[in-house]
Design a protein around this nucleic acid. Structure first.
Lengths: 123, 123
DNA sequence: ACTATTGTATTAGTTACTTAATACAATAGT
DNA sequence: ACTATTGTATTAAGTAACTAATACAATAGT
């Protein structure tokens, strides 16, 4: 999963989202050591300060914690990660259905669009 | 449909999206006269310049056109609106499935989540 | 012709984001 | 003890977004 940073919104916000995603999807597993701020910043082609800001935010949420010199780690609280994952999923579903609704799509239509797409990807 | 402006991304970008949505959903029907820049700005609690910027962008896309003093109008090209609507829907579906996939959800799960939610809203 | 309302343009000031460069603080590893 | 690497903090500068205030241009309506 590559870093995808668009210019139409604050980078730190996008970093937060993508780090959250990486944690919830297990790319950074519970208890794992994160790459250093500087390495992450270089990976994402971003200033270390910007990356630091994003990491600090996740730390506030409790998803990360840091030991001064040994590095920064993903929480070992798998329950918290699971809840975060569900929260993110629910937000996605909610936003999606809202937008589609505003565009005038019925549930039946939405369902058939997704099933069609699913079949596309299977074959 | 109220104006929803968050602080985590440029306002003009959000205005563009929501105006697009209003046009595609028929809130501003084909050929209809839009409220004036100043009125729209006041509605959305935004500076007229910011609203103007968003409107100018939609005008570039051809979704709007303006007559100097009589106001700004939605295009009469219903086909263009239809295409825009489909484009927006496709983007929504694509983004949604991508995010859910990254969160580790299978299609079957996604489908059942949506159907469950649909039933929730029906009852 | 006059007037009000429309879209449009300009200039300036403020704020937030981002980068950059640097320094400090703490400790694991040697 | 020393050293490298870690997270953290600070200061400065540049850029873009947003607001604000104002003015101009065009024309529909009277």
């Amino acid at each position: 999963m590559a870093w995808e940073l668009k210019t139409d919104r604050p980078i730190y916000a996008q970093l937060i989202e993508q780090l959250e995603l990486r944690i919830c999807s297990g790319i950074y597993p519970p208890g794992a050591r994160m790459p250093s701020v500087r390495d992450l910043a270089q990976e994402a082609s971003v200033n270390p300060n910007t990356m630091q800001r994003a990491l600090a935010s996740l730390e506030e949420d409790g998803l990360l914690y840091s030991h001064r010199t040994s590095g920064r780690f993903v929480t070992k609280d798998v329950e918290m990660i699971r809840k975060t994952r569900n929260k993110l999923a629910q937000e996605q579903v909610h936003e999606f259905l809202k937008k589609m609704g505003e565009l005038g799509f019925e549930y039946s239509e939405i369902l058939s669009i997704i099933t069609d797409l699913a079949e596309e990807l299977i074959k």
